[in-house]
Write a protein that binds this DNA or RNA. Structure first.
Lengths: 181, 181
DNA sequence: CGTGAAAGTATCTGTTT
DNA sequence: AAACAGATACTTTCACG
């Protein structure tokens, strides 16, 4: 179903660099004809490897000058679904993950300015499931790669291995004020 | 230099949804002719609002099945540039930020599997500037929006307000084993 | 900003290796 | 699977109004 050969990987790499490249251009770069490239791209999309095409936009230029990562702390057994429904609906949240470690989740938020960030944070903390938050404001972005194609040979097929916190001695971490009772 | 009107924002929104949409298509959606759309897109690119176009790829489909966020702790006065040069060159790092709070930086890494993640982490911790790390493995991705166009009126021109940790009482946070002496 | 014309692409269909 | 050739329809891009 989803075996990518070297050609597929080079096509993907080319489309990551320039999502508007023509099939002919890509073909020249990887040594295929335009129709052959199209066939492969169609297959990559059907297989879910390529999920779409998008403009790459500078958030700051659109007015999003402030961003932060917020660790979310929930009550004992809060499911991922519950966390999801708590953070969806907050338009400032651009990404959210459940994570190992002390916090239940990590959310990446973007705001127009500090004031807006504070409002968004307040609104988030009003969610029932959320007992506490810990915010780290982004001071500067050092790196921001879209993604890298896996080097050399294909990816390992997930050989199991336990997930879990990579070091949990909860010595009481600093959290945003007012942990709800 | 960078004043976006309603039309510009709708064009950007359209290109975020479909980066390969033709100028004619976009024009129909926003009520402009194809050349008018092209002129605006050219201007948006020249102004740095649109920095490029890219395929949107599912990392898991390319073999990146494991990701984590790593807080990086550095010695007292380590500059952003030094941190940058410490984390660049590690291909697993897909994003890196300097942040407020206890840690000096937060890096987002992607690996093929847990074993690969461990190797990357070890390699990172070998950097001279890095004294400790704290890793949170991503268990599941709840949300992953590309970006949102700012709602309604234009963005506020940054009304100041102090940055800084939003609650720092360092009660000794849990870190990855082996904080270098 | 729109119009219209010229050059370049996309996409389909066969045919051949 | 892929290259190639040829047909049709779109797209891009550049004049000019």
């Amino acid at each position: 179903m989803l075996r990518l050969d070297e050609l597929d990987r080079r096509i993907v790499a080319r489309l990551l660099e320039d999502g508007r490249a023509s099939f002919a251009q890509i073909g020249t770069a990887v040594g295929l004809s335009a129709p052959a490239v199209k066939r492969r791209v169609d297959r990559l999309r059907a297989d879910g490897v390529i999920t779409g095409f998008a403009a790459v936009v500078d958030p700051a230029a659109l007015g999003w000058t402030t961003e932060a990562f917020i660790e979310i702390f929930c009550t004992g057994a809060t499911s991922p679904e519950e966390i999801h429904s708590s953070v969806r609906g907050h338009p400032e949240v651009v990404a959210a993950y459940t994570i190992s470690g002390d916090a239940s989740a990590l959310v990446h938020v973007r705001a127009r300015d500090i004031r807006h960030l504070e409002q968004a944070l307040e609104r988030l903390r009003r969610e029932d499931n959320i007992t506490a938050t810990k915010t780290s404001i982004v001071l500067s972005r050092l790196i921001g790669r879209p993604i890298d194609a896996p080097d050399g040979r294909g990816a390992a097929p997930d050989g199991g291995g336990d997930l879990g916190a990579s070091s949990d001695m909860p010595g009481q971490t600093a959290r945003d004020r007012l942990s709800r009772p």
